[in-house]
Nucleic acid binder design. Structure first.
Lengths: 200, 200, 200, 200
DNA sequence: GCTTAAGCGAGACGGTACGTCCGGTCTTAGA
DNA sequence: TCTAAGACCGGACGTACCGTCTCGCTTAAGC
């Protein structure tokens, strides 16, 4: 968690912390990241402002904790099966991700975090290591298994392959340059899997 | 330009407008987008705040004008040649883009615009139509010519192909998940071109 | 007035200034000096806090202006007649002052100013020069005329005589060590006038 | 002492109490009454805040105890001799008081107490009964002996006489309207004694 | 001598106000 | 009429203290 080093976390008031994270999530859904204020969170959580500042360095940090706390409650990482059919497996997972990113309750805080990360290298580091990279790993690992099965080129750079899959998806979503549809991810998967097949 | 409809643009003071755009660019390079303020721009440009509010609806709009004004001064769009060798042409262009995005003077305002766009759909629309889409078009058009030459599958979705090329690039840059290098774009191009070759 | 040097007073909004002074006076009467807050004044005056900070350096300064503005509206300085009978004239004036200091509307802000002055040398300087000293002068001048008439010793220190009259009064009021009555001031006047009669 | 009734004073930690009083005195000398904080005292005394709140109801009460504790250590009440020469005796005593009030170590906490008393009737009651009134009594008693000796009028109000002596002194000091000098108190004494001589 | 209730240092907590910054609107003087 | 300047109302910032409230811990009294 992102607490200040100065304070003794064993004395945290659980009830307050939960109220803060819940307030942050619900508020960011209502007003967006830029209009999200620490005062607003404190007011909704019925908490003193200092209680937020004591434990988090910025609203981005609050939001990150809020988001991951909720995600860990459900089963966070979208499931990526390994049926032996790489393209099918990738499509399955990415279609689930499409649904997720079309859900306003997921989208609002996630966009807020992305904005914070784009803005500030420190936030980006947190965002990446706690949200993006775990997702990447799942894809890389599936690609690796395909590689070992001989389905894709032995020398393919799997990290970059994952970036093709997820970067195009992210960009379309973040800049709203198009709808996130099953067709879109299917096409992306086909192109990438095809590209990986014969020496790249 | 993004001016308000209310004012008569023939009466604009050119000197002031230029000073505002220059001030916006230099300030965003110094303090970043979130700490960029209208008051700060006005003060540096030695201009009344109202003069900014009269002609632009938001700091994102100022910045967008500032950025495009500078870009148009130089030759903005990265040149994409058509030598007949698709992969080589794409690499040539993307390597130039790598250089551009590694230039701090370019990077700071562009990142600011991307943040504004990620935040706000209206800003995104402007950002996309004035900066992203023109770039996309260049790539799509080159892909189209390759398609007509029979180098890539006839039924390939060229827009999505361009998104693969540029989205992975953008994501890596925006979230700072890795360095932008020639090797990176070369690999991306090879994968994508390979993927386009045989029906996708 | 106690405005900051930085601002151009010709651009003050009269309505706001008046509202601030009125709010300060009414609030100090309701809650006392220590619980008087700039935020409270701003809220009651329907004014931004900055508008107070722009023109006054402290709540003591606001209050001093508020108090003197009101006083100048009425005829501030208690009238001290010169009938030729020094003791009678002093009693007349001090009895009026007794009434004034027994009036809650007068007392609350005046006590607030006295507290501020006792606390802080800068406030004391303002308080003294704008409120105490003018009062002193009136008494000294009446004593001077009595001295010229031969009613009191030629070498008497009139400023100190005034301090005896007003200091004992002030102390009793400020520390609430006794009631302010006509009898009290009459006795004080008799003692002091008697003491001044034969070389002191 | 001003302790709360709720607590059992036999269990007080002497060391802590002393540290609190010393911290209060030294801090008030450094920052003044308004900027004196309970947290600051606790921090300097290396004591929990609750230990202060347990034993004193306000910072004024702490300060009053701190001040009287120190005073009782030395011989607090300025000696007022009775040589038969009233004026000389009063001058002797008041000159000593002048020295006292010109001593910064004495002045700072005493001013703080006076401010607290001026502000708040409850503090005033404590301040008066524990510091002012004992001083008054000494003067009244000396005047009484002079009255019995026939040096001053038999019907003179001796309390008011004492108020003349001490009130003018206090006022000059509190509002810093002039220096406290031997000449000043000498003149005050001469006027008052003279005024008391023949029926007042 | 053991236990148990208190005082204790520490500091988190819900609050209030601070003094500052900036947003976006409005007013004024001058070119 | 547009501009530079900046006052205005409003709202959020991040900080300082308030007075209350747990926490473990020490410690002294009374069983």
């Amino acid at each position: 968690m992102a607490q200040n080093t100065a304070s003794d976390s064993s004395r945290r008031n659980e009830r307050s912390q939960r109220a803060i994270l819940e307030a942050a999530l619900s508020l960011v859904g209502e007003v967006g990241y830029e209009k999200l204020t620490i005062e607003g969170i404190a007011a909704r959580a019925k908490v003193g402002k200092q209680t937020i500042y004591r434990w988090w360095p910025s609203k981005a940090a609050v939001l990150l904790d809020a988001f991951t706390a909720e995600s860990e409650a459900g089963d966070f990482e979208s499931f990526l099966p390994d049926t032996g059919d790489l393209a099918a497996d990738l499509k399955f997972s990415l279609r689930a991700t499409v649904d997720e990113f079309n859900d306003p309750n997921f989208q609002a805080p996630y966009r807020a975090l992305a904005v914070a990360a784009a803005n500030d290298a420190a936030a980006a580091e947190q965002f990446t290591s706690r949200l993006l990279e775990p997702g990447n790993k799942v894809y890389i690992s599936r690609l690796h298994s395909a590689q070992e099965a001989g389905d894709i080129a032995a020398d393919a750079d799997l990290r970059i392959a994952a970036e093709l899959l997820l970067g195009s998806f992210s960009q379309r979503w973040l800049m709203r340059t198009g709808e996130l549809t099953y067709e879109f991810v299917d096409t992306v998967v086909d192109m990438v899997v095809n590209g990986l097949r014969h020496g790249a």
